[in-house]
Measured scan of single mutants.
Amino acid sequence: ILEEAISVVMSGKMSVSKAQSIYGIPHSTLEYKVKERLGTLK
């Protein structure tokens, strides 16, 4: 489920907030994982 949510957000089909409510994943977790994948994590 997490992988799917990350893919959807990264493809631009859904915002982090929308994915959070649909997949039930905490906003901070989703945002962290997306940034980690994009290489923008500081």
Rank of each mutant, 00 (worst) to 15 (best):
V8R: 10
E3I: 02
T40V: 11
K13E: 12
E4R: 05
G12Y: 05
T29N: 15
S15E: 08
T29V: 14
E3R: 02
S15N: 10
K35Q: 14
G12R: 04
T29H: 10
K13D: 09
I1Y: 11
A19V: 05
K35N: 11
S15I: 00
E4Q: 06
H27R: 14
H27F: 08
G39R: 10
V16G: 04
S15V: 02
I22C: 09
I22L: 12
S17Y: 12
A19M: 00
E4H: 00
S11T: 12
K13Q: 11
G39I: 07
S21R: 12
A19K: 00
Q20P: 01
A5M: 00
L41C: 10
K18T: 12
L30G: 03
G39H: 09
G39M: 11
S28I: 10
T40A: 15
I25A: 03
G24Y: 01
S17E: 15
L38Q: 14
S28M: 08
E31K: 06
V9N: 04
Q20K: 09
I6H: 02
L30V: 05
K13W: 01
E4S: 06
K42P: 15
S17F: 04
M14Y: 06
K18Q: 15
S15A: 05
V8F: 07
A19F: 00
I25E: 04
P26L: 00
G12H: 07
M10C: 08
Y23S: 06
I22E: 13
L38N: 11
V8C: 11
S17H: 15
A5Q: 00
L30R: 01
G12Q: 02
A5W: 00
E31G: 05
I1V: 13
I22K: 11
R37N: 11
V8S: 11
E4W: 00
A5G: 03
S7Y: 05
M10T: 10
H27Q: 14
S11K: 09
H27T: 13
E31A: 11
K13N: 11
S28T: 13
S21H: 10
K13C: 03
H27A: 15
V16E: 07
Y32N: 14
L30E: 05
L30N: 03
E3K: 08
S17R: 12
S15R: 01
L38F: 08
K35G: 11
L38S: 12
I22Y: 15
I1A: 12
I22R: 10
Y23V: 03
S17W: 09
M10N: 01
A19I: 00
K35D: 10
K35V: 05
I25L: 08
G24K: 07
K13G: 08
K42C: 12
T40Y: 07
V16A: 12
S15F: 00
L2Q: 06
V9I: 13
E3T: 01
L2A: 03
L30Y: 00
L38C: 11
G12T: 01
L2M: 12
L38T: 13
T29S: 10
G24H: 08
A19R: 01
T40F: 04
L38K: 13
T29L: 13
G12M: 01
T40L: 11
I25F: 03
K42M: 11
I1T: 14
E36N: 01
T40P: 10
V8E: 15
G39Y: 08
L38A: 14
V8A: 15
K35C: 07
S15L: 00
L41D: 14
I1N: 14
E36D: 06
Y32S: 15
I6G: 04
I6V: 12
L41V: 14
P26S: 11
S28A: 14
K35P: 09
K18W: 01
K13R: 09
S21T: 11
R37C: 05
Y32C: 14
I6A: 05
K42N: 15
S28R: 12
L30M: 04
A19S: 04
V16C: 07
T29A: 10
R37P: 04
R37H: 08
K33D: 05
G12E: 06
V9A: 00
V8Y: 07
K13T: 09
Y32M: 15
S28F: 02
E31D: 06
I22Q: 14
V8T: 11
Q20M: 07
V34D: 06
S7M: 08
Q20L: 03
K33M: 09
K33E: 15
H27K: 15
K42Q: 14
Q20N: 09
T29K: 10
S7Q: 13
K33C: 13
S11P: 01
A19W: 01
